[in-house]
């Protein structure tokens, strides 16, 4: 009896917590489907009389969200693919190749991971403006084409594959390049997926850097565009919530499909801290 009671209590607490986590999302969806007068009803209503899907169309067309969307997709995909490419090559070198200064280089890079990224914003901005890249895709992409965090995670995965396979492949006359792409990369698929998904989420949601390096409306990414939209939308909360929804939705869908990789990635990345 006591056991059953504690089980009920357990579920009650967990459910209450889950509702708390969900309320902002539900409130966002609910508001996004209301009419303007409905948004300021007291007490608040959760289910609008008739669902105003038109709010989404209106919000989408009141600011160049289509353009923001394209920008975010371009920046996120190029950054992710580029960073993955440079990281796979470097991780392979650290995991399998012999070279002078290997440990020194590795330690230096580990040290740089301690530096808060916000410190790098000013010099990077100066560099990019000298190269004339501010307000171009290049400024949004190039600084993020390498990540030592990704190199570090991939190196770990590469090292955990049996070294004998490497020597066997070499014995059979396979080049390092071929071994890397036909053996090592497929063998480390789950780690690669994990770092990719984390990178996509990070890129998609990035705010401070895109805010600083974009000036014209047409170069904004979704989060920066959404932030600017608040000035136009003013107190039209139903439109603001509709816009917030379509910024959030792509990552939520991605998360639903790739949840297990995201969680695996976090535990791997987090645990070696």
């Amino acid at each position: 009896m006591a056991k059953k009671l504690s089980k009920i209590l357990l579920y009650a607490i967990v459910t209450l917590g889950a509702i708390t986590m969900l309320i902002p999302f539900l409130w966002m969806l609910s508001t996004s489907l209301k009419t303007a007068p409905e948004t300021i009803k007291v007490p608040p209503i959760w289910i609008p009389k008739s669902l105003q899907w038109g709010n989404y169309i209106k919000a989408w067309s009141e600011a160049p969200f289509a353009r923001y969307f394209v920008n975010s997709v371009v920046v996120t995909s190029v950054t992710t693919v580029g960073q993955l490419f440079t990281s796979i090559l470097a991780a392979f070198a650290f995991a399998r190749l012999k070279f002078f200064g290997k440990n020194l280089i590795f330690v230096i890079f580990l040290g740089t991971m301690m530096i808060p990224g916000e410190m790098l914003i000013i010099p990077n901005f100066v560099t990019l403006s000298k190269l004339g890249m501010i307000d171009h895709y290049a400024a949004l992409i190039v600084p993020w084409l390498a990540s030592f965090f990704t190199v570090f995670t991939l190196r770990q995965a590469f090292q955990s594959t049996p070294e004998q396979i490497y020597y066997a492949a070499k014995m059979d006359g396979a080049t390092d390049w071929k071994y890397l792409w036909t053996v090592l990369v497929p063998m480390s698929k789950s780690t690669i997926t994990a770092v990719t998904v984390l990178q996509v989420i990070g890129s998609w949601n990035a705010f401070m850097w895109p805010l600083i390096v974009t000036n014209t409306e047409t170069m904004r990414t979704l989060p920066v565009g959404l932030q600017a939209f608040t000035t136009d939308a003013g107190t039209e909360y139903q439109l603001l919530m509709a816009a917030s929804t379509f910024v959030i939705i792509p990552m939520v869908i991605l998360y639903m499909f790739l949840q297990k990789y995201i969680i695996a990635g976090i535990s791997k990345a987090g645990l070696k801290g």
Binding site: W204, N205, F207, V247
Partner: peptide, 12 residues
């Protein structure tokens, strides 16, 4: 909440 854009959720 972890996967959602900080900016979007701050609007909410």
């Amino acid at each position: 909440p972890f996967v959602t854009s900080t900016v979007a959720i701050a609007m909410v």
